[in-house]
């Protein structure tokens, strides 16, 4: 198997980092991005400690002498263009916006790394877990996704799909948001969601995340009892999104139980 597929792969995007770590053969993945080690954003921060990191700069990546570079759609275009000019093959992954996109990306990563068998195993496990979630159809509490700067996510985003998979109705969809956009605090308060799904703030405060501590957001979160549960599992289209669905489905069950007991 030594000559099968690329042997020195460098990933420079948080989401491709995780897919590559899940699928690469031992020794095949030469480096992951530094964000892969950030517990707040990366669902595989511990695993990433085992790999050398890069900062997505053309110079350092070229010096790693990769025979394949995997980048995300949002990786700096100038960097990937320069790497291509230097003769390094670059594969670009689009971000996943749905659970079927997740399946798609797993398959593509398997092909790119020439690890189709590993990808097939991972896909089978993904489908099994998804089927095992078994979300009962009755009762769809209204939930709102709310993150830094007052951004919400609509049904055409990965977060929105996670919400739906967990058996919740998306308030953003009612209000006409498709992907993501800024939802004024007033509009959120007037929509009065059953559950508020907020993000876990980064360490070291920022004004953008201040909004998650606003009395209105706190009031809505206390009312529904979900709060800041959105974490690294939500960020990337990897099998880890199922963990997010599971956590959210539990919040939903708790909410419905509370409602029934009232």
């Amino acid at each position: 198997m030594a000559d099968a597929g690329p042997s020195r792969v460098v990933s420079m995007n948080l989401c491709t980092d995780q897919l590559a770590m899940l699928l690469a053969a031992p020794g095949q993945l030469a480096s992951v991005s530094y964000i892969a080690r950030d517990t707040r954003a990366s669902a595989m921060a511990d695993e990433a400690m085992a790999y050398p990191i890069n900062h997505g700069l053309a110079e350092e990546i070229y010096l790693l002498q990769p025979d394949l570079v995997i980048a995300g759609a949002y990786s700096t275009f100038t960097t990937t263009a320069m790497l291509r000019r230097l003769g390094v093959p670059v594969v670009v992954f689009q971000p996943a916006n749905s659970l079927s996109d997740v399946r798609d990306r797993i398959k593509k990563m398997g092909e790119v790394l020439e690890r189709e068998a590993a990808a097939a195993d991972l896909l089978a496990a993904f489908d099994r877990q998804l089927a095992a979630l078994d979300i009962e159809a009755d009762g769809r509490p209204r939930a709102a996704l709310y993150s830094a700067n007052g951004y919400t996510s609509g049904p055409a985003s990965l977060a929105g799909q996670i919400l739906e998979a967990a058996g919740l109705a998306n308030v953003a969809a009612e209000l006409g948001y498709d992907r993501s956009g800024r939802m004024p605090l007033e509009v959120l308060a007037m929509a009065d969601p059953d559950l508020l799904v907020g993000t876990t703030p980064y360490p070291r405060a920022s004004r953008s995340e201040d909004i998650l501590g606003h009395p209105v957001v706190r009031h809505l979160a206390a009312q529904g009892g979900a709060g800041q549960i959105r974490d690294a599992d939500w960020v990337c289209g990897t099998p880890h999104v199922l963990r997010a669905v599971e956590t959210l489905a539990q919040e939903r069950r708790d909410f419905l139980n509370r409602e029934r007991s009232e």
């Binding site: 980064y202 360490p203 405060a205 920022s206 995340e209």
Partner: peptide, 13 residues
């Protein structure tokens, strides 16, 4: 220099 990824966008504010 802040480790928080949102901080740089707040220069405008």
């Amino acid at each position: 220099l802040s480790p928080n990824p949102f901080a740089a966008n707040e220069i405008v504010f």
